[in-house]
Design a protein around this nucleic acid. Structure first.
Lengths: 106, 106
DNA sequence: TATAAGCACAACCATTTGGTTGTGCAATTT
DNA sequence: AAATTGCACAACCAAATGGTTGTGCTTATA
């Protein structure tokens, strides 16, 4: 298996999506993210490591606290991919139509 | 580990994204999907099983051939989630601003 | 009727994933 | 100075992932 570290991997896990949403409201330290998450601090820390490796968050040390900030720019890539797929889907009969039109002419 | 079968899981793998894009152009059988994929038929078949379980494709048997069609509607959920995150991100200073305004009044 | 095409099913494999507990260090608070 | 807070690091675990090969069945084609 290959370890993939991209946006798609980042948002594939529901816990990580929860973290991203929490951080979208503003920077938080680990303890604040853990609150009401139902997961241990260490579990959250692992997800933060993944999110960091995926480039979805920025970490800043401040005394003994570590602050996490969301970096949402890469989400554009996902939306672009979705739009591309939908575009192809919308055009999927055009090739056939064109072919049929050409055939009719002959 | 828990087996997750949703859109996010479906699009997390690059091979599955490739399959979705191919199918966005129109229905194909397995052999056509395998072409130039660099993966064995059985490998592709596994991905198709996942995509089917995620509700991202529809399978139709026709003689000895199995046709796969993309079902892109669930991609809306992803875009909605991204937009929600971006919205929160845009509003992230509003709460602070409001608080400061209130404080000033006193 | 042979042969080939298209596919399903099973077994196998190494690696990743998503969690846990346990230990210990550095920075604050009391 | 002592206790607490916040975190990092390591080890462990079962299950999932993403691939492979091998076998055999059914449906077309030559």
């Amino acid at each position: 298996m290959i370890e993939r570290r991209d946006v798609y991997q980042a948002i594939a896990d529901p816990t990580r999506r929860m973290i991203i949403q929490k951080l979208s409201g503003g920077a938080l330290n680990i303890g604040q993210i853990v609150e009401d998450s139902g997961i241990t601090r260490q579990g959250i820390a692992k997800h933060l490591k993944v999110l960091n490796e995926c480039g979805m968050i920025t970490l800043t040390q401040k005394g003994r606290e570590q602050f996490c900030e969301a970096r949402l720019d890469q989400l554009d890539e996902v939306v672009d991919w979705v739009n591309e797929s939908r575009k192809l889907w919308g055009q999927r009969f055009e090739k056939l139509d064109k072919f049929l039109a050409e055939t009719k002419k002959l």
